[in-house]
């Protein structure tokens, strides 16, 4: 697949040194937020192969085996011809040809995200075609989007499913929590190699609309999500049936639509529940991270 690099242009300073400098705390937050979240002893990233037609710098982050928080970022050369680093805030959107990321997850950078909702417009468009082709020709409706930016004054939270799983030793199951509590089996994992073409991934979440009871009669999936994890389920405004992010089979349209590069598609190789928070809790955490103070919402 892609050319993988375990080493690259080393970041001259460690994350800890970054944090030490108060003036650069924010920069640290940007780098640390993404990089730190991937600091994981064993590097298992299958990164997206991109063929760039224009200049493009993909800041693929590859963790090293160095213990604790010392993390290097590798600037990945995309093709032989496209190596120019984009250093200004003007980024040229490349035309990319991609392959899906297995076991994919979305990581959203709260510093880069501007809350412009272009991710949600793209997602809604993707799903309205899938689920309501009769409306797709003339309607734009963000309710079909599985990714929902929410604005909390000074911070934007992009609410999405983080692919939580239960831990078998503690919870007696390795299913997704929403999947576990679904009384009809409507919300289920499609195993790898099965399901829709192009959606292979490492299995993906899917709602069987014929079986789903809908929020009026049920709502267990969202209730358990909001009680113990995040708020990753939404409901179709017309059928009232559950909607969940299927990661577009490892090539999410939201990430492509983002003009800021704030959405990264990664294969974290770990349980997504560590990223999940209800929107308000995320907003409060982001607020702490960005402004260094606590604010109750």
């Amino acid at each position: 697949m892609s050319e993988e690099r375990s080493s690259g242009k080393k970041d001259p300073i460690t994350r800890r040194q970054f944090v030490a400098g108060a003036a650069t705390a924010i920069v640290s937050a940007i780098v640390g937020g993404i990089v730190g979240s991937q600091a994981f002893p064993k590097t298992v990233t299958e990164t997206v192969t991109r063929e760039a037609t224009k200049t493009l710098t993909s800041t693929a982050t590859v963790s090293t085996t160095v213990p604790t928080t010392v993390v290097s970022t590798a600037t990945k050369e995309v093709t032989k011809t496209a190596t120019k680093e984009v250093t200004t805030t003007v980024t040229v959107t490349p035309t990319v040809k991609k392959t899906p990321v297995k076991n994919a997850m979305l990581l959203i950078n709260p510093v880069k995200c501007t809350g412009c909702m272009l991710c949600a417009f793209a997602c809604a468009e993707h799903w309205i075609k899938e689920e309501h082709p009769e409306l797709a020709g003339e309607t734009i409706n963000l309710e079909f989007s599985r990714i929902r930016p929410m604005r909390f004054q000074y911070v934007d939270v992009v609410n999405v499913c983080y692919q939580c799983r239960l831990e078998p030793y503690a919870e007696g199951s390795d299913k997704h929590p929403c999947e576990q509590v679904c009384p009809t089996g409507a919300l289920h994992t499609v195993p790898e190699g099965e399901g829709k073409e192009g959606y292979y991934g490492n299995g993906y979440l899917w709602v069987d609309k014929d079986k789903c009871l809908g929020i009026d009669k049920c709502g267990r999936c969202l209730e358990v999500c909001e009680e113990q994890f995040g708020s990753g389920i939404s409901y179709d405004p017309i059928t009232k049936k559950a909607q969940v992010c299927s990661m577009c089979g490892g090539m999410p349209v939201c990430a492509d639509a983002c003009p800021e590069g704030a959405i990264e598609v990664v294969a974290p190789g770990r349980n997504g529940r560590v990223y999940a928070e209800p929107p308000e809790a995320k907003a409060e955490l982001y607020y702490m991270k960005l402004f260094g103070v606590r604010r109750d919402l």
Binding site: A170, G172, P183, G219, R220, L222, V224, E227
Partner: peptide, 16 residues
Amino acid sequence: YKDVSVLTKYDMTPQW
């Protein structure tokens, strides 16, 4: 929005 809880312990595993 839903102002009544529908989730019960029977929806979850005993260990959970």
